[in-house]
Amino acid sequence: MLIITVNLLVEKHMLSMDNIGLETSILKQADGSGKFTLGLTSVLASVDGPAQVGLQKEIIDRAFIEVHYESKSGQSSCSSRTMEYFVAQLCQQSIVTSMHPRTSILINITELHNDGCLSACAVNATTLSLLDAGIPLRYIVSAASCCISDEGTIYVNPSKETIKTSASYYAKAIINSCAVNELKYFGAYVKVAAVSCFPVDRVLHYRILLRHSM
């Protein structure tokens, strides 16, 4: 069994957890929008739906989910297709698509700045915008990034520099609020993700509480 030490406190290697920023309902035209900031990385996502869908994209028993990703340069590349696929797969699982048959749910993700952990931020921003739009979800998906250095130390939410220097691995771990046990990568990952996703849940909770305590 592989035993890995999780180093959460090496500040120079990771994006500071204090710099987590969440904003919802920032776009007026979209049905739901959310901005997620982690350190210097910042991603904006918006959701439109359940909306009318053309005949070609119509699925009779569930909603059609479409994800668009726009990078900072505005050019679409292979990596942005990968990002779209990654987020779309997660949304397919988390959204209760059978609740809105013959409709479309369009998700737009815009990169504002990239300093590492971009895909994790994109997932978190998408989750925020889905919650804001009131799309029915099975659970909350939040994400964190990890990289493993030569010595076998895991760095959570690494900065771009750290990812470059880390020889071995860079991955993202996904966790949701109800199906933690379903994650069977390796033990350390679940732990890492749980630690980093906690603030997301907590801040969300706090924000909704504020809105409703009025």
Binding site: S25, D31, G32, G49, P50, A51, V96, M99, H100, L131, D132, A133, G134, P136, L137, R138, C178, L204, I208, R211, H212
Partner: peptide, 28 residues
């Protein structure tokens, strides 16, 4: 289970009714 984010509300008049009051723009 909850499937939307919001405030859980309970009305006990005439049987028990539970719902979630959430903020949304799109009408269903």
């Amino acid at each position: 289970q909850a499937c939307k984010a919001g405030c859980l509300k309970l009305r006990t008049e005439g049987g028990c009714t539970l719902w979630i009051d959430n903020q949304q723009k799109r009408y269903v």
